[in-house]
Design a protein around this nucleic acid. Structure first.
Length: 425
DNA sequence: GTCAGGTCCTGTGAAGTTAA
DNA sequence: TTAACTTCACAGGACCTGAC
């Protein structure tokens, strides 16, 4: 690590770049080998394993298992959502055409709904004896779609999945709740999207009739994963409804820094920041991005600790680090959860940047660099890294303009601190 | 049917404790 | 002493309830 500390920022970025290229080539080769292996397996066996990279069937397998007992009167819905990962087929939702119905104008009219996460898995509609309408079913899962061709968030297809509630609230009343919020400038969650430029572009459809609350939540969570709506890039679902073990995320707030603007909590496993209103916004970076940057920058290391990663961030992104408190502890918590597989089953697919299936070979307290698998999203990684670099650059420029604003030294974790002792750190 | 206030639940991250 | 681990209070979003 010491040689890295002697490097300039440019040298470090160069190293990251060259390491990234090497690792990318290695990953590609490993993937090719895996593909060849699975092909030779499939020719010698009758089982037909899906060859599509990163099928969502992997990420929500456990949910699917639960769903096997999902016996509803119309359980033949979603006929395409098992098996080889083709189109997801649901009943069609049509206008009820009852006079003064507030929902009719929002019913989805298109023949299919694209999937931003898995392009090969759009929503299609099957011909059914009884279509869903604004008033039917009462209990089930619904999707909200943005059809604004100029959507500022570039959303296409479902951006939010919801369910009818536990009590008397029906799907119809839930939709009315949403629609009622579109005129409210202070609307939160998915409603704030449609309270803006996309106000008249919301469309909805009902996906499945399920009377059991638990099963509704499981189904809703499945859809979130299948369409990636847990990620702000593709949707507005903040949380899964069902998690066998609660996933956690790193959010480092800085209440002592005065007025703050909260960062929307839409991504799971995200390093979020509360920022001073006047200050340049600290970028929101996936915590995995930071770990991957560390792994890529240290190809010779076979294992590391949260402290190593924290030191790396401190050495390479000092301004970003200085905006954080207790980063080491948070990294430690999240790394442990990832490596031990706690977040795998229903967390966003970002958690799958790390190999969890081979957890037996990875110590949770000292993860190996080999935990990085082929599933990590280069685009998200590059985006996060760029945001970090840009932020550091702008902060450095600010420093050189006023030499007294250098980042504060690394925050040491406080233990047994006397509140009155301001020098405890 | 609508809306405002209430409740519940999960994410967040800091504080505290234990182990090495 | 420090790293690793555990616990818990708080914030905010999703959903519920009841009045109008």
């Amino acid at each position: 690590m010491s040689d890295i500390r002697d490097m300039t920022d440019e040298q470090i970025m160069q190293l990251i770049g060259s390491s990234a290229h090497t690792i990318s080539l290695c990953n590609q080769e490993l993937q090719n080998r895996k593909r060849r292996d699975s092909e030779s397996m499939s020719t010698s066996s009758s089982s037909t394993a899906p060859k599509t990279p990163r099928t969502d069937n992997e990420s929500d397998q456990s949910v699917l298992q639960s769903d096997e007992s999902d016996v509803e009167s119309d359980d033949s819905d979603d006929v395409g959502d098992r098996g080889n990962g083709g189109a997801i087929i649901v009943r069609k939702t049509v206008k009820c055409n009852i006079p003064h119905c507030t929902l009719c104008k929002y019913v989805n009219q298109s023949e299919f709904v694209p999937n931003m996460l898995y392009a090969t898995r759009p929503l299609h509609f099957k011909i059914s004896k009884e279509d869903f309408t604004c008033h039917f079913p009462k209990k089930g899962v619904y999707a909200m779609i943005c059809i604004n061709p100029n959507c500022p968030d570039k959303y296409v297809g479902p951006i939010y999945f919801g369910i009818s509630g536990e009590g008397k609230a029906t799907l119809q009343s839930r939709m009315n709740d949403h629609i009622g919020q579109f005129d409210n400038t202070g609307a939160a969650g998915v409603d704030c999207h449609f309270a803006g430029e996309c106000k008249d572009f919301m469309r909805f459809l009902f996906l499945k009739q399920i009377s059991d609350l638990r099963k509704r939540k499981i189904k809703e969570t499945q859809y979130m994963h299948r369409f990636g709506t847990l990620d702000r890039l593709r949707g507005m679902n903040g949380n899964v409804s069902v998690a066998s073990l609660p996933s956690r995320s790193i959010g480092l707030s800085l209440p002592e820094r005065g007025d703050t603007v909260s960062v929307r909590q839409t991504h799971k496993l995200v390093m979020s920041r509360k920022n001073q209103k006047s200050a340049k916004k600290v970028p929101t970076v996936h915590f995995q991005t930071l770990v991957v940057a560390f792994i890529k920058a240290n190809p010779a290391l076979t294992s590391f600790t949260a402290i190593d990663v924290a030191d790396f961030i401190h050495a390479n992104y000092p301004h970003y680090y200085s905006k954080s408190t207790n980063m080491q502890n948070s990294l430690s918590n999240r790394l442990k959860e990832n490596v031990s597989g706690k977040v795998k089953e229903t967390s966003s697919y970002y958690s799958n940047w790390f190999t969890l299936l081979e957890k037996g070979s990875v110590e949770s307290n000292k993860p190996s660099k080999f935990l990085l698998n082929n599933n990590f999203d280069e685009e998200v990684y590059a985006e996060g890294l760029k945001a970090l670099v840009d932020f550091e650059k702008s902060e450095q420029e600010r420093d050189s303009a006023s030499p007294f604003t250098t980042p504060s030294p690394r925050t040491v974790r406080r233990t047994y601190v006397n509140e009155n002792d301001s020098d405890s750190d």
